[in-house]
């Protein structure tokens, strides 16, 4: 799904809970699209990956958060090869 031809920059993308069930997959290796990398010289962002993967809605909902390598991160953070990117639906612990 939404995989480019650049094998040098795979990112492990993980989805949880309602996002996982809405898309039908929980994790996959995604090669970063050239267009996404070109849009940000420092590296593509989680927001660009969200769109590259065709996740819905096209603009990430306000309650969805991002984690890179299991740390909360910003939607405009730069991704590098080997990162683990997770999209986290609204949290409800405790």
């Amino acid at each position: 799904m939404a995989v480019s031809a650049d094998p040098a920059s795979p990112v492990q993308v993980r989805l949880f809970a309602s996002l996982r069930e809405a898309t039908g997959w929980s994790e996959q290796l995604v090669e970063l699209a050239a267009t996404a990398k070109g849009a940000n010289p420092a590296g593509p962002t989680p927001e660009q990956l969200w769109r590259q993967l065709g996740l819905q809605p096209a603009t990430p909902p306000a309650g969805v958060r991002v984690a890179i390598n299991q740390q909360f991160a910003a939607w405009d953070a730069s991704l590098v090869a080997g990162d683990e990117l997770a999209f986290l639906p609204p949290i409800s612990g405790g």
Binding site: F16, A17, A67, L88, P89, P90, I91, S92, G93, G94
Partner: peptide, 14 residues
């Protein structure tokens, strides 16, 4: 800490 767990720890309830 309880409030932090509810809002900041990655858990999801169904």
């Amino acid at each position: 800490l309880l409030e932090a767990l509810k809002h900041e720890a990655p858990f999801w309830k169904r």
